[in-house]
Simulated assay, not measured.
Amino acid sequence: MSEHRPTAGQRSFGVAAAALTLYGIFLRPRVLRWGATDEEAGHSYPGDELIPDPDGSSTMATTLPVPPEGVWPWLQQMGCNRGGWYSWDRLDNGGHPSAERIVPQWQRLEQGQHLDSVPSGEVWFTVAVLELGRTLVLRSQTTLPSGRPFDRLDEPPPRAYADSIWGFHLRPAPGGRTRLVVRARGRSRPRPLTRPMDLLFWEPAHLIMQARQFHNLRTRVSTTA
């Protein structure tokens, strides 16, 4: 009786399955709550209600060495063709450096305003929740796979879409500092196709970009304090 040996393809599949299992158990919880405390991760924030039944959610946080009024102007001028996103500019700002100073003409912000997410202006975030000096929630609604925006809330979403929020919440911290908590929530369809992309690409990518933004914001507010 011959011994059955797994093929190379079966071994590769087994290794991949084991790696995904370990990632889901040990690493993914840390990815989804980078820098956040238990209380911050469990807290509800303005804008959460826009995605009431999310397919995925993350809460990331950092402490900045200035009070909220020193952080808010940097958030208020975010956006392509404005101050940028303070992250990896070659990836999310068309290669243009994000602003290193406060620019007065970019300090006007209002609910419903579109903030370009790409330099062409063909894709954007909508200012969904705005509490001056405290909360800024951006919403992105795109048709898949084209990436074209849709924001007609009075109509059903397309059959394939992604709907997400990116919320920035400023809270005073001891010593004249600020706790910046960033809450992301999303829902997408068709789920059998979008879930693998969330796990393998979007969640790690969000961590990389968000951690970079935290670092660059800390550098900017420290310089201008």
Rank of each mutant, 00 (worst) to 15 (best):
T135Q: 08
S117G: 13
S120Q: 04
Q113C: 10
L115I: 04
Q107E: 08
S120M: 00
T126K: 01
L132M: 13
P104I: 11
L115V: 08
V118Y: 02
E122F: 03
Q105E: 09
L136D: 01
L132G: 10
S140Q: 12
A128C: 07
Q107A: 08
V129N: 05
V127F: 00
T135G: 12
D116S: 14
L136H: 01
G121D: 04
F125D: 15
P119E: 02
Q113E: 10
Q107C: 07
P104C: 07
T135D: 07
W106K: 02
V127T: 03
L132S: 15
V118A: 08
E131F: 05
W124Q: 10
H114S: 07
T126C: 08
V118R: 09
V127Q: 04
T126L: 04
Q111I: 07
V123D: 06
S120D: 00
T126D: 09
W124H: 11
S117Q: 15
T135V: 13
E110S: 09
F125Y: 13
V137C: 15
T135M: 02
L115A: 10
E110A: 14
Q105P: 09
V129L: 01
H114L: 05
S120R: 00
T126P: 02
T126Q: 10
L109T: 09
E110T: 15
E122V: 15
V118W: 00
L138V: 03
V123P: 07
S117L: 12
D116M: 07
V123Q: 13
V118F: 00
R139G: 01
F125R: 02
G121F: 01
L136E: 05
E131Y: 14
Q113H: 02
S117M: 15
V123W: 01
W124K: 11
R139N: 03
G121A: 06
R139L: 09
R139Q: 12
W124T: 12
E131W: 01
G133E: 12
G133C: 09
L136Y: 00
V118G: 08
L136A: 03
E110W: 06
G133Q: 07
T126H: 07
L115C: 12
S140P: 01
L109R: 06
E122R: 14
S117F: 00
E110P: 14
L138G: 09
G121R: 04
V129F: 00
L130I: 06
Q113K: 07
Q113Y: 00
W124S: 12
W124M: 08
L115G: 15
Q105N: 11
G121Q: 05
V123K: 08
W106A: 08
R108C: 15
P119Q: 11
T126R: 03
V137Q: 04
R108L: 06
E110H: 13
F125I: 11
Q113L: 08
D116N: 11
S117V: 10
L130G: 05
R134I: 06
D116I: 10
Q107M: 01
F125S: 14
L109W: 03
Q107F: 02
D116K: 13
L132E: 13
P104G: 10
V129D: 07
R139Y: 00
S120K: 08
V118C: 02
Q107D: 04
L138R: 10
H114F: 09
L138C: 06
S140R: 14
S140M: 12
V129T: 15
D116A: 15
H114R: 15
Q105W: 02
V123H: 01
E131R: 13
V127E: 03
E131M: 09
V129M: 01
L130H: 11
A128E: 12
T126W: 00
S120C: 05
R108D: 10
A128R: 12
L130S: 09
L130V: 03
